[in-house]
Design a protein around this nucleic acid. Structure first.
Length: 781
RNA sequence: GGACCCGGAGUCGGUUGGUAAGAUGCUUCCUUUACACGGAAGAGACACGGAGUUCGAUUCUCCGCGGGUCCACCA
C-alpha cells in the first residue's frame, strides 16, 4: 500500500493500537540492556489534560523515545496523585456532606472516573508509558508505603507532634493549606494608637482587636526616632499589661509610625517575629473566631471586638487618628471568609536542621537548565520552620499515629498492621505507659507526603525494592513545584534510602497563553490539548512542545508554531511520497554516486551529529530546528530538485546513486524525528522500509570538498532562479546557456556538478569561468 | 518587597566576545510529473537605557526601566 494522502487521524489511531498490542513501551527488566528510569510526575486527576501537562509529558516522551533508540531499557511509569482538597470540594458539591467513610468512597469513585478520561488522552498523545507500571496514591499498597515511610522517619526522630501555628478558617472551622487561599483586596482602616501610660509611643495597626494578644512592639534597629525605646517596656492601652520594645530589621520604617505591635497571631509576619524572638504565645481566638484571653472582650467575634475596641480607645483618648488603607487579605477559596492564623496541635517533619545536607544532595544532581538549582537553593536556605504534614481533612492518607490523651506520648502503628486508619482502628497498645487513654489521630497527610516518595515507589519500595531502579536516571517536572515536589522528594528519599533519588532533573517552564501570561482559565488565555487536536495532528502538537522555547523557559502557546509543525508533517509526508515513487524498483548494488550525493550525505552526517548532541543535553528546540532545517532546505528544496532528472531519466547506476542517497537520508530523518513525531515517522517508515524504527542513526563522513561544491552548485541555482523570476520565466523554463563565474580554486572541480546544474536549470550549455571574488556569479541566456 | 528568567526585524524568537539563525507576516514571480495547507526571489532589526571590563559586546559585570515566574506581603 503506497502512502497516499496524509490522514493524520487514521495514522494516529493505527499506531496507538499497534504500540498497545505489541507492548512496545513495556519495561523488560530482563532485557540485559542498560536501564533508564524516569520519575514522572503523578498528576492530580482533574479531568482534562492541559497544555502544561502536554509540555511536561512531551519532554519526558522525547527523552524516553530517544533513549530507547539509543539502546536503553526505558522505564516510563505513570502515577496519579489522587488525594486533595479540590476533589473533596467537587464531591461535596455533588453529594453534600456525607459521613466520613462514605465521603471518602465517593472521592475515590470520582477520582477513578476522572483518571479513566485522562488515560486515553495520554495515549492519544503518544506518550510511551508502560501502563503496567501505573500507580495510584489511593491504593492500599501506596497508603502502606507512605505510612511505612513515616514510621521509619518517626523512628529516626524526624517526625514529631507539636503545637504550632496553622492557617485556619473560622467559618469552616478547619485548618487549610496555603494553596487553598485566595487573595482578596479590600479597603481597611489603619488605626494610630498611643501605647504607654503617658502616650509614649504611637503604633499603627489594622487589627486593634488583637491588642489582648500583643506580646511586644517592634521598631527598626536603625530608626533614630526610637533609639531610646529599644529594650524598654511599654503599657498596652486598655489593658494593664506591659510589653517589651524590640528591634527587627524586617520593620518598615516608612509604614505607619515605624513602630509595630506583635500579636503572635494576626498575620504571618507576627508569627515569624514571635518565633524568631521567642516571644510568649497568647491564643487570640477559638476555632469559631471568637476572642479568648481578652478579658471583657472575650466571646466577641473579631468584627464585633474591633468595633468595640475602637470606640473604647477613642473614649480613652488613645486613638490618635484613623486612615484608610488598601490591603490584601487571604480568604478561604471556598467560603471567601478571611483566614486567621491559629495555634493547634499538628504533625511535623524536621527539615530545618537538614538544610545543609539537602543542599549538598541537590547539588550532586544535574539540573537542566542549571539555574533551576538556584531556585532550589533559595528555597532551602530560607526555610524558617519545619514541614507541617497534617491536614484536618478526609480524603488522604491517615497519619499512622496515636497519642496519649494525658501525657501526649506518641505511639506509632505496628508495621504489620499497615495500612492503618487510627481514626477507627485499634491502637497498637491498650493504654499509655502513664495509664492515659490513647487517641487515634484523625488528620491525614499533606499531599506532598504522598508524592515525595515516587522514585521509591517506581522501584518497588518497600517490599519489592529493586535496587537497579534506584536512583533513577531522570526526574522531570515543572518549575513551579521545585520547592515542593523536588524539595520534599530529595529530602525524603535521602532519609529513607540514603541516596539521592535521581541523577538528573529536567525542569520545564510554565505554559503561557498567546498574551504572554501563564495560562489560566481566569485570564481567558486558556487552550486545551483537545482544542489544538481538533485543528492539527498529535505530531504537530508534540512538536510545539519543542518549538515553544528552549528548555526551562516559559513557553508561550502560539498557533503559528503549531501550524508550522503541521506543515512540517505535511512536508515530511509529501517528500516521502516522492521518495517512495522515486525509489521504486531500487535494489542495492552498482550505485554510482555523484558529488551532490556526497554533499547531501555530508550534510546529513553533520545534522546527525548536531541533533544527537542537542538530544543528549535535553535541548529539544535545537534538535528539532536542526532537523527541520536540514530536511526542509537541504533535502527537499535542494536535493530533491537536484536528483529529479536522474530518477526520472539518467542511466541505471546514476539513478541508483540518487535513490540510495534519498533513501538513506530519509530513513535517518525519520529515525531522528520519531521522538517528536512518532506517529507520522512510524507510518512512513513502515510503509517505505517495513518494520519499526528501532535505532538512532550513526553519523559518518563529512566531505568538505563536497560541501563546498554543493554550496557553489546551489548558490548558482539560486541565482538562476532569481534571474528567471526577474524575467518572469517559469522555473522550468528552458535556457540556452548558463554562464557561471566561480572562485579560482573551484573552477576545475565544478565539472563534477556542472551536469547537475545543467539539468536542474534546464540549460542547453554551461560555461564556467574563473572570477576574482569568492562569490558565485551567474548569467543566463 | 525578595529571588530567578527575559527585553533583538510588524510579531515570535535560537545561538554567539568580533556587527545577528529560523518561523510568521509583508512584496513580487511561478500551476515545475512529492507538496498551492506549495515553490522561487525580495524588502525588513545595528540587539531596552546608562556605566564598566575588553583591542572589540547583542553576547560578560553593575545600575535603572519594562515584562514574566515563584515566594513574601506591611503591622
Amino acid at each position: 500500500m503506497p502512502l497516499g494522502k496524509l490522514d493524520s487521524k487514521s495514522v494516529e489511531e493505527k499506531w496507538a493500537k499497534v504500540w498497545r498490542e505489541e507492548g512496545a513501551h513495556a519495561f523488560d527488566a530482563g532485557s540485559g540492556k542498560l536501564f533508564y528510569v524516569i520519575d514522572t510526575p503523578p498528576p492530580f486527576p482533574t479531568g482534562e489534560f492541559h497544555m502544561g501537562g502536554v509540555l511536561n509529558w512531551c519532554y519526558i516522551d522525547f527523552v524516553a523515545r530517544y533513549k530507547r533508540l539509543r539502546g536503553f531499557e526505558v522505564l516510563f511509569p505513570q502515577g496519579w496523585d489522587c488525594h486533595g482538597f479540590p476533589t473533596e470540594v467537587k464531591v461535596e458539591e455533588k453529594y453534600g456532606r456525607l459521613p466520613r467513610n462514605e465521603f471518602v468512597e465517593k472521592c475515590v469513585e470520582w477520582t477513578r472516573d476522572v483518571i479513566s478520561t485522562m488515560r486515553p488522552q495520554m495515549n492519544q498523545m503518544g506518550f510511551s508509558i508502560d501502563w503496567a507500571r501505573e500507580y495510584y496514591t489511593i491504593a492500599p499498597e501506596y497508603h502502606e508505603a507512605v505510612q511505612y515511610s513515616l514510621l521509619k522517619m518517626f523512628d529516626e526522630g524526624l517526625v514529631y507532634r507539636g503545637n504550632h501555628v496553622v492557617l485556619w478558617c473560622p467559618k469552616c472551622e478547619s485548618a487549610i493549606a496555603k494553596a487553598e487561599t485566595d487573595e482578596f483586596h479590600r479597603e481597611t482602616v489603619l488605626n494610630y494608637v498611643w501605647f504607654g501610660k503617658d502616650k509614649e509611643l504611637l503604633v499603627a495597626t489594622t487589627r486593634p482587636e488583637m491588642l489582648h494578644a500583643c506580646v511586644g512592639v517592634f521598631v527598626h534597629p536603625s530608626d533614630e526616632r526610637f533609639k531610646d525605646f529599644i529594650g524598654k517596656e511599654v503599657e498596652v492601652p486598655l489593658l494593664k499589661k506591659k510589653v517589651r520594645i524590640m528591634s527587627d530589621a524586617a520593620v518598615d520604617k516608612e509604614f505607619g509610625t515605624g513602630a509595630v505591635m506583635v500579636c503572635t497571631f494576626g498575620d504571618s509576619q507576627d508569627v515569624l517575629w514571635a518565633h524568631r524572638h521567642s516571644l510568649p504565645v497568647i491564643d487570640a481566638f477559638n476555632e469559631r473566631g471568637e476572642l479568648i484571653n481578652a478579658g471583657n472582650y472575650s466571646g466577641l467575634s473579631v468584627k464585633e471586638a474591633r468595633e468595640k475596641i475602637v470606640v473604647d480607645l477613642k473614649a480613652d483618648g488613645r486613638l490618635e487618628k484613623r486612615e484608610s488603607l488598601q490591603q490584601m487579605v487571604k480568604v478561604h477559596d471556598r467560603c471567601k471568609s478571611p483566614v486567621e492564623l491559629m495555634r493547634s496541635s499538628q504533625w511535623f517533619v524536621k527539615t530545618k536542621e537538614f538544610k545543609q545536607e539537602i543542599l549538598e544532595a541537590a547539588a550532586s544532581i544535574k539540573w537542566t537548565p542549571e539555574h533551576m538549582f538556584q531556585k532550589f537553593r533559595d528555597w532551602t536556605e530560607n526555610l524558617e520552620w519545619d514541614w507541617c504534614i497534617s491536614r484536618q481533612r478526609m480524603f488522604g492518607i491517615p497519619l499512622p499515629f496515636w497519642y496519649c490523651g494525658e501525657c501526649g506520648k506518641v505511639y506509632a502503628a505496628r508495621e504489620k498492621d499497615l495500612p492503618v486508619n487510627p481514626a477507627i482502628d485499634e491502637p497498637p497498645v491498650k493504654e499509655c505507659a502513664c495509664g492515659g487513654k490513647l487517641v487515634g489521630e484523625t488528620s491525614i497527610c499533606d499531599g506532598w507526603i504522598d508524592s515525595s516518595i515516587t522514585p521509591l515507589i517506581v522501584a518497588g519500595w518497600p517490599h519489592d525494592f529493586d535496587e537497579r531502579l534506584y536512583p533513577g536516571a531522570l526526574r522531570s517536572q515543572g518549575t513551579d513545584i521545585i520547592r515542593t515536589w523536588a524539595f520534599y522528594t530529595i529530602f525524603r528519599c535521602m532519609k529513607l534510602a540514603g541516596e539521592v533519588p535521581f541523577k538528573e532533573v529536567l525542569v520545564n517552564g510554565m505554559v503561557c497563553g498567546e498574551d504572554g501570561k501563564k495560562m489560566s482559565k481566569s485570564l481567558n488565555n486558556y487552550v486545551e490539548a483537545k482544542d489544538v487536536l481538533e485543528k492539527v495532528g498529535v505530531d504537530a502538537l508534540r512538536q510545539w512542545a519543542a518549538l515553544a522555547g528552549s528548555t526551562g523557559k516559559d513557553n508561550q502557546f502560539r498557533w503559528k508554531d503549531v501550524n508550522y509543525a503541521q506543515s512540517f508533517i505535511r512536508k515530511l509526508w509529501n517528500a516521502s511520497r516522492f521518495v517512495e515513487k522515486a525509489s521504486e524498483g531500487y535494489s542495492p548494488g552498482d550505485e554510482e554516486y555523484r558529488v551532490v550525493d556526497r554533499w547531501l550525505e555530508s550534510r546529513l552526517n553533520q545534522t546527525i551529529e548536531r541533533v544527537s548532541k542537542a538530544m543528549e543535553s535535553n535541548d529539544f528546540y535545537a534538535a528539532l530546528t536542526e532537523l527541520h532545517s536540514f530536511f526542509w532546505h537541504d533535502y527537499c528544496d535542494n536535493y530533491l530538485e537536484d536528483v529529479k532528472y536522474r530518477v526520472y531519466g539518467g542511466d541505471a547506476q546514476d539513478r541508483k546513486g540518487a535513490q540510495a542517497t534519498l533513501v538513506k537520508a530519509l530513513k535517518a530523518v525519520l529515525e531522528m524525528v520519531s521522538p517528536f513525531a512518532p506517529f507520522t515517522a512510524s507510518e512512513v517508515y513502515s510503509k517505505l522500509f517495513g518494520g519499526r524504527i528501532m535505532e538512532w542513526p550513526e553519523n559518518g563522513f563529512v566531505d568538505d570538498k563536497a560541501l563546498l561544491l554543493g554550496k557553489a552548485l546551489h548558490d548558482a541555482l539560486s541565482l538562476v532562479r532569481q534571474q528567471k523570476a526577474d524575467k518572469n520565466l517559469a522555473l522550468n523554463a528552458p535556457l540556452d546557456e548558463v554562464s557561471v563565474e566561480l572562485p579560482m580554486d573551484l573552477v576545475d572541480e565544478f565539472a563534477d556538478v556542472s551536469d547537475d546544474l545543467k539539468a536542474v536549470s534546464k540549460a542547453e550549455t554551461i560555461t564556467v569561468n574563473a572570477g576574482q571574488s569568492a562569490e558565485v556569479k551567474v548569467i543566463i541566456r
